[in-house]
Every structure is written in C-alpha cells, then in structure tokens.
Amino acid sequence: MFKQTALIAACLTTGIVATGLAVPSVAHAKDWIEKVEVKRDGINPKSIYVAANGNGYTQIKTTSYTFPLGLYAKAKSGKRIVAMKLGSFKGVRYFEADGALWSKSFAHRAVGSGSKRTVSLHYNAKLPLHAIKWHGSDPKKRCALRMQYLMGKGQSKQQVLSKQQSVKAYAYFELDAVAARKNKAKKGWKLSNTTSQRDSYKYEVSVTCGASIGLNKK
C-alpha cells in the first residue's frame, strides 16, 4: 500500500513538473513589445584617421567618435516602456552589469516615467575608440586589408602608402528595451515582472588611411 501511494505521488509530482515546463510562468518579450529599433539619426562628417609609416598602418589616431543615434521602442496595448539600454557590444541587457563595456541606460523621466507605450529618443553617443565594438574589422585592419587588396592588383606597398586611402568600418550597437504592465509601469517594475527585446545596428563610419608622408590628423 505504501509503495502504491508513493508511486501515485511520484506520478502526480512528475505531472505537475511537466505542466510547469510546458506553460511558461512569464510572458515572452514578443507578447509585450511591438517594436525596438536603433539606427543612425544624423550625420557625423568626421572620419576616423589611421596613421601610417613606410612599413604600413601603425595606429588609430582618432581618440573618440560621436554617433548620432535614434532609439525607438513601442509596447503593446496595456503595456508601457519603462527603460532602455544602449550598448556597443553583443548581449546588452538592461538589468545586467556591463563591466568595462560601454553602455548608456535610460529610465524614469528619460522615457516618460512609465506613461508611454512609445518612446523615441535622439542620442549622440560619444565613445572613446577603444570602447567601440566593431562589426568585422576595426579601422586599422580595414586599412591593412585595403593595402593588401591594392597590392594584389599590382601596386607596391610604397605606392599604396604614398597617398591617403578611404575605406569604411562598422561600429556595432544594440538597444535593449524593457516593458511592464501598465499598472506596474510607474513604480514597482523590476526584472521579474518585465520583459525585454533587443535590436542591433551596424553603423557605417568613414575611415581615412593616412599616407606615410604628411601630417597625422586627429
């Protein structure tokens, strides 16, 4: 009798666990957030400058760069956007620490204090060059690849380095938006009663590969 009772209890427990796994206890981000977008929102005419000597490209001389960005998030009916975080790395999460990685958070009055379904912001993200996460190669490597390409076309290294070259590099950004139910949006929202959704963007930047003779620019 004891064994039979234990077996029934075990089966019931297994059924409860299985049911719990099959039915999530929290809503997915797609149920609470309609759209998240980060994109270019303006023009920075400045190019990043890479210095050169007779042997090749030596270092990125530009120390910082400003990225004009548009940040957008829209929650579904009955939900509100309560926070956003912009970062230049993969895996941006509003509720997680970033260590030495670059990020900027927006919450409370910056996003309407939990009163808005739609939040749209313009932000000039000024980053030191060492903090930028590049999609693909960084500017110095892009210059080296350009030189390799031109040498493959028959130019000598000296010919390539005797004049400036222009290439493109791509800075990587992610935006994480957080939504809460309307009745929790003004106060009381936290990780356990919110959901989030991210978007990413590859920001094209002009790069000037310097000549081996001439002024180094910053």
Rank of each mutant, 00 (worst) to 15 (best):
V17M: 15
P128E: 05
S196R: 09
V36D: 04
H130R: 13
G78I: 06
L121K: 12
D31R: 09
G20C: 06
R80M: 12
K30G: 07
Q165F: 00
V38W: 01
I8R: 15
K35P: 00
A27I: 06
S113W: 00
H135R: 13
S120H: 09
L101T: 07
I48H: 09
A6H: 01
T208A: 13
Y72S: 03
Y123A: 02
Y149C: 01
G87V: 08
K140D: 03
Q59C: 00
V111Y: 06
S88Q: 03
K202N: 13
Y57W: 12
Y94K: 07
Q59T: 11
G154A: 07
I81E: 11
N55F: 05
V178P: 01
K163R: 13
C209W: 04
A169R: 12
Y94D: 04
K3L: 15
K202D: 07
L150I: 08
A177P: 10
L21D: 01
T13V: 14
I48E: 04
W32Q: 12
P128W: 00
T195P: 00
A179Q: 07
K46G: 03
G154Y: 08
A125F: 04
H135E: 14
A75I: 04
T5F: 11
D138W: 07
K153V: 01
Y72A: 00
Q164S: 15
I33D: 02
A83M: 02
G99A: 06
Q59K: 11
V17D: 05
A29K: 10
